[in-house]
Design a protein around this nucleic acid. Structure first.
Lengths: 338, 338
DNA sequence: TTGTAGGCGTTATCAT
DNA sequence: ATGATAACGCCTACAA
C-alpha cells in the first residue's frame, strides 16, 4: 500500500493525498473526504521511512539510560519516567528509541556519535547528570538537540529540566528533623560523580548551618543497599551516634533501617530515618518510611515537552515540575531524650 | 554527508561504498580500506531512513509495555528486561522502540494496527500474556513478526519465550514448605486475566495434591501491595489460619508480611511467607524474604534473540532461559507446632 | 573488480 | 485547487 494506490483509488494525484495528510496546501472538502475514505479502505498510513528520508526528520527521539556494569540494570523509577515521556510523544506519533549505555563497556564519544550520525532520532533525552559531564558539549558539537534530566554540571551548556532548586526536599527534611529536636544528623548519600547527590550534600550542609548545626557525617557511596548498610554500621559503631540518618534512595534507607534494627536500636525512637524517592514499598516496611517523593512521570513529561519544543513542535505549555514533597511516615520521630 | 561524498573522496562510485559497508560484492582490500578511511574522515554512517526505505527494513524492533490506568506506571522489573533486550540488539545496531499501551485508554486493535502500518519496526515483543489474548491472532493478521514473553493462552498461535514449565518455582516452593511441615498453605496470587498467575495457581493446587494436600485458600487479586494486605487480613481473620502464604510478587509479600506482623503474629514462627520475583530489597526486610527469583535480563535476551531469528538474522544459539530459582531466606520456617 | 541506473514512498516546487 | 516531477540517500541488478 503506497500513497499512489490511495491516490489512484481516490482518483487524484499522490501530491493531493500528501496534502490531506499533512494539513498543508488547500484541498476541497469533497476530495479531501474522498481521499480519507480511500486511505481507510486500503488501510494505508504514511510510511515512516519515506517521510524520514524526505523530510530528514525521523519523528522519533532517543532516551539514553545509563547502567553501571557494577550495578547491572537501570534504576526502577525509570519506568514511570518513561511512561511520562511516552505520554507526550505518543499523541504526536513520535517514537521513543531506547538506548542503554553501559559504563565501562561503551565509549561515550563513540556511542553518542553513532546515535547522531545514523540520524534515527531528532533529539535526545539524557539522564544521570555527572560532575564534569562532557555530553552537553558533545551533543552540541554533534548538532543533536538534547535535554538533560536533572541539573547540569555547567549551567548554560545544555537545556535541562529539574525541580527548583534541584536539591528540593533536602531543606524540608532538615527542617522536619530539626523541629523534632535532632542535632546529630548524618547523610549517607549518592556517588561523588553525580551532580544530584553533590547538590544535595551542599544543600544539606547549608540548611543545617541555617539552624546553627553541623552535619554529624556526610558519606557519599554508590546507590546500593549493601553499601548503605555498611556505612550505617560504621556510623553506629562510632563514639557518638547520630540521631537521624538521611539516605540517597529509599532502598538504601530500608537497608539502613534494617541494619539499625539488627543492632538492637529502634527506629525512630533511637534513630530517625529518611529515604529519597517515594517508592510505594516504603509504606510497607516497619516502620513506614519517611521519604522525599519525586514525581518521575512528570519529569518524563517535562523532559519530552522541552525536547519537542526544541524541535519546533508546538507543545501546549511546558509542563511544570512538581516540587518533590516530604512525606512524613513512621520512620522519623522526636530525637531521643527530648 | 552522503554516500556520494564518501565515494567522491575515495575516488570510487557510491555503489562501491555501499558494498564495503554491507559485505556484499567483492571489493579489493586496497579500495576497501581507502573507502573506510574516507568514511571515517567524513564521519559518515549510512543513513537509517534511506536504508529503511530502500530495504523495507527499519532495523528496529518494538516493545510494548502494558500499563494499567488503575495502577499507573509499568512494573519495575521491566528495566532489567529491557537491558537484556538491548544487550542483543545494540551489537547488531538494531533499535528498540518503546510503546506504552494504556489499558482502557487505548484501543488494542487500533494501537497495534498503527504500529504495523507505519512500518517503523520489523518485529515486536509483547508482554503480559492474557487469558483470551487476541494479540497473537492480530499480529499474524497484521503480518508483524512477534514474540510473546510468557506462556501464551493458546499454544501455537504465537512464538514465545518462557521458563519451562511457565509456572516454574511453584513446585519447588510447595515442596519446600511441605518439607517444613506446612499443611495449610494459601496463595494470594495475581489477577485472573493474566496467564501467568493462572498457570501458577494450577501448579500450586497440583503440587499440593501430589503431597496429598489441598490449598488452604487461593485468592486472585491485582498486583498491588494494598490489596495483598487486605486479603492477608481476611485470611488471618478466618477461623483457621494458614501457616504459610505465597504471594504473586515480592512487593505483595512484603505488604503481607507487614500485615501479619501488625496483628502480633511472627514471621516465620507463626506464618511463613514467600514472594515472587527476587527483588534485591527482599534481603533487607525483616525477616529477609524467601522468594522465587526470575531472571528478567535473560528473559529480555531470549525474547530479542528469538525475534531476531524470526527476522532472519543469525543469532548464535537461542539463549536458554534460566529456571526461576527458589531463594530460601528468613521468611520461611518450620510450621508452628512442629 | 568496479561503475551505472532505477527505484523505494514521500514531500515540495512549479506548472496548469 | 490540483497534477506532474524532481529530489531525499541508499541498495542492487546489471553492465562494463
Amino acid at each position: 500500500m503506497t500513497i499512489s494506490d490511495v491516490a489512484a483509488l481516490a482518483g487524484v494525484s499522490p501530491g493531493a493525498v500528501s496534502k490531506v495528510f499533512n494539513g498543508n496546501g488547500r484541498i476541497s472538502e469533497a476530495t479531501s473526504e474522498r481521499i480519507r475514505e480511500a486511505a481507510r479502505k486500503l488501510n494505508w498510513r504514511p510510511n515512516a521511512a519515506a517521510i524520514a528520508l524526505r523530510t530528514a526528520r525521523s519523528q522519533a527521539i532517543g532516551l539514553v539510560l545509563t547502567s553501571d556494569s557494577k550495578v547491572p540494570g537501570v534504576g526502577a523509577g525509570n519506568m514511570d519516567f518513561i511512561s511520562g515521556i511516552e505520554s507526550v510523544l505518543s499523541p504526536r506519533e513520535y517514537g521513543l528509541l531506547l538506548n542503554v549505555f553501559i559504563t565501562g563497556q561503551h565509549d561515550e564519544d563513540h556511542f553518542y556519535r553513532t546515535l547522531a550520525e545514523r540520524q534515527r532520532m531528532d533529539g535526545i533525552i539524557l539522564t544521570n547528570s555527572r560532575v564534569s559531564d562532557t555530553r552537553p558539549e558533545l551533543m552540541s558539537r554533534l548538532g543533536l538537540p538534547a535535554v538533560l534530566v536533572g541539573a547540569p554540571w555547567q549551567p548554560g551548556a545544555i537545556e535541562y529540566v529539574d525541580a527548583d532548586p534541584p536539591s528540593a526536599g533536602i531543606a524540608e527534611t532538615v527542617d522536619h528533623l530539626v523541629s523534632l529536636g535532632h542535632e546529630r544528623v548524618a547523610f549517607i548519600s549518592g556517588p561523588r560523580h553525580f551532580v544530584l547527590p553533590e547538590l544535595r550534600r551542599e544543600a544539606f550542609v547549608q540548611r543545617l548551618a541555617d539552624h546553627g548545626l553541623r552535619p554529624h557525617a556526610v558519606v557519599p557511596v554508590e546507590y546500593s543497599p549493601a553499601r548503605a548498610a555498611e556505612e550505617t554500621s560504621a556510623l553506629l559503631a562510632g563514639p557518638v551516634r547520630p540521631t537521624a540518618i538521611l539516605y540517597g534512595t529509599d532502598t538504601m534507607a530500608i537497608a539502613g533501617m534494617r541494619t539499625i534494627q539488627a543492632t538492637g536500636l529502634r527506629v525512630p525512637d533511637d534513630i530517625s530515618v529518611v529515604g529519597f524517592e517515594g517508592l510505594t514499598l516504603g509504606e510497607w516496611v516497619d516502620p513506614p518510611l519517611t521519604t522525599v517523593q519525586r514525581f518521575a512521570f512528570q519529569r518524563g513529561r517535562a523532559a519530552a515537552a522541552k525536547l519537542l519544543t526544541l524541535l519546533g513542535e508546538t507543545v501546549e505549555e511546558p509542563v511544570p515540575l512538581e516540587r518533590p514533597a516530604l512525606i512524613v511516615r513512621g520512620s522519623t520521630g522526636r530525637a531521643p531524650g527530648q
